[in-house]
Amino acid sequence: MPIKARNNLIGGNGTEEALLARLKFEIDPSGDRAGGGQSGAKVYLAEATPGQWPQDYGLCVSICQPRCPDSCGKGRVAYGTTENSPVTFMNFAEDTVEQKAESVGRIMPHTEAQIVDMKTGTLAELNTSGELCIRGYCVMLGYWGEPQKTEEAIGQDKWYHTGDIAVMDNQGFCKIVGRSKDMIIRGGENIYPAELEDFFHTHPQVQEVQVVGVKDDRMGEEICACIRLKKGEKTTAEEIKAFCKGKISHFKIPRYVVFVTNYPLTVSGKIQKFKLRQQMEQHLNL
């Protein structure tokens, strides 16, 4: 069934809440929760990092709920971009923990969303990945002084192309699985870095990981996992690859594993994957 979610309800809850797609939690020894004056955990909001917030949200539930049961259930997971602000998808209190941890919620009132097949431009099937497009009052008029860039982002039909790869289920819950610009095409197979980054975060020695595609004469692109280990931990590329076997598809196992101590960042703290890709190609002499 083609995916096209539309919510024309009047009203809605939580539109004033901040955009969050990644949560970080820190126990507050003073017992004063940030902004709330209640015993619990401080909650920090950061920009979208697909694949990272679900584990952190689970931490929220395990830490906050015993300490502040009256307010923990009111937490929100939401999705939005600068171009369609403030949020276009959100979870609500009545959603289950699994729905909150595994999705960014359902479409907001007076807003439309559709998942589009990137090859054909047609609506994607349910539970099939494609580019997330948004239409509604929340979409910007355009980029200041850049009409060509605006035309590339917003079609004549007023759909804004987010560049995010998403999946929607039959209940309308949306899951962000990656960025179209970050997608790796290895021998004709589409590989989403966020999926692999999720997997590598289950490794007990891995602190952080970024997956990029590096050029390859035969396959077009190969997978390179740039791993930052936890303090005091040591491992090898061979051990990391062995960890993958039998757990993910063979063609998704990185050909290259590089251990790093930091990543190239923007002034706002976002990881610059295009620079990381360039660094890895230079490092690997590709």
Rank of each mutant, 00 (worst) to 15 (best):
residue 272 Q to S: 11
residue 60 C to F: 13
residue 163 G to D: 06
residue 150 T to C: 03
residue 162 T to M: 05
residue 10 I to W: 05
residue 73 G to S: 11
residue 18 A to I: 12
residue 208 E to A: 10
residue 142 G to S: 07
residue 248 I to C: 01
residue 177 V to D: 01
residue 105 G to D: 12
residue 82 T to L: 13
residue 262 N to C: 07
residue 136 G to A: 10
residue 164 D to T: 02
residue 132 L to R: 04
residue 250 H to P: 03
residue 166 A to K: 00
residue 260 V to S: 08
residue 131 E to W: 10
residue 24 K to R: 12
residue 223 I to C: 01
residue 96 T to I: 09
residue 261 T to W: 02
residue 29 P to F: 12
residue 270 K to N: 07
residue 247 K to M: 06
residue 159 W to P: 00
residue 80 G to K: 09
residue 81 T to E: 09
residue 172 G to F: 00
residue 125 E to Y: 05
residue 33 R to T: 11
residue 8 N to D: 12
residue 249 S to F: 07
residue 34 A to V: 08
residue 192 Y to E: 11
residue 6 R to D: 05
residue 77 V to G: 02
residue 274 F to P: 00
residue 74 K to H: 11
residue 217 D to F: 10
residue 97 V to L: 14
residue 64 C to F: 03
residue 115 I to S: 00
residue 162 T to Y: 04
residue 185 I to V: 15
residue 191 I to E: 03
residue 85 S to T: 15
residue 200 F to W: 13
residue 259 F to R: 04
residue 45 L to R: 13
residue 108 M to L: 07
residue 248 I to A: 01
residue 103 S to M: 09
residue 21 A to W: 02
residue 140 M to I: 15
residue 211 V to F: 03
residue 270 K to C: 08
residue 270 K to V: 05
residue 59 L to P: 00
residue 19 L to V: 12
residue 59 L to W: 04
residue 195 E to Q: 10
residue 275 K to R: 14
residue 91 N to P: 01
residue 57 Y to P: 01
residue 273 K to E: 04
residue 125 E to G: 10
residue 94 E to H: 10
residue 44 Y to H: 13
residue 107 I to Y: 07
residue 26 E to R: 09
residue 116 V to F: 03
residue 180 S to T: 05
residue 17 E to L: 14
residue 211 V to A: 04
residue 232 G to H: 10
residue 165 I to H: 01
residue 208 E to V: 03
residue 266 T to Y: 12
residue 217 D to L: 08
residue 234 K to V: 13
residue 251 F to W: 12
residue 260 V to T: 11
residue 285 N to Q: 15
residue 97 V to F: 10
residue 193 P to D: 09
residue 202 T to L: 12
residue 245 K to N: 10
residue 145 G to E: 08
residue 68 C to A: 14
residue 106 R to K: 14
residue 74 K to W: 13
residue 235 T to Q: 09
residue 148 Q to N: 08
residue 179 R to F: 01
residue 272 Q to F: 03
residue 234 K to N: 13
residue 225 A to K: 03
residue 200 F to K: 02
residue 247 K to G: 00
residue 162 T to D: 06
residue 222 E to D: 13
residue 226 C to N: 13
residue 75 G to I: 13
residue 6 R to P: 00
residue 187 G to I: 02
residue 163 G to P: 10
residue 50 P to K: 02
residue 112 E to H: 02
residue 41 A to H: 07
residue 214 V to E: 01
residue 88 T to Y: 04
residue 176 I to Y: 00
residue 57 Y to W: 14
residue 136 G to S: 07
residue 29 P to D: 15
residue 121 G to C: 10
residue 275 K to A: 09
residue 30 S to W: 08
residue 165 I to Q: 05
residue 48 A to P: 12
residue 155 G to Y: 03
residue 55 Q to D: 11
residue 69 P to H: 07
residue 242 A to E: 15
residue 140 M to N: 01
residue 267 V to I: 14
residue 129 S to K: 08
residue 125 E to I: 04
residue 111 T to D: 06
residue 46 A to Q: 13
residue 153 A to F: 03
residue 97 V to T: 08
residue 29 P to S: 14
residue 24 K to Y: 15
residue 138 C to D: 11
residue 212 V to K: 01
residue 8 N to Y: 14
residue 156 Q to E: 14
residue 77 V to E: 04
residue 258 V to R: 05
residue 186 R to V: 06
residue 248 I to S: 00
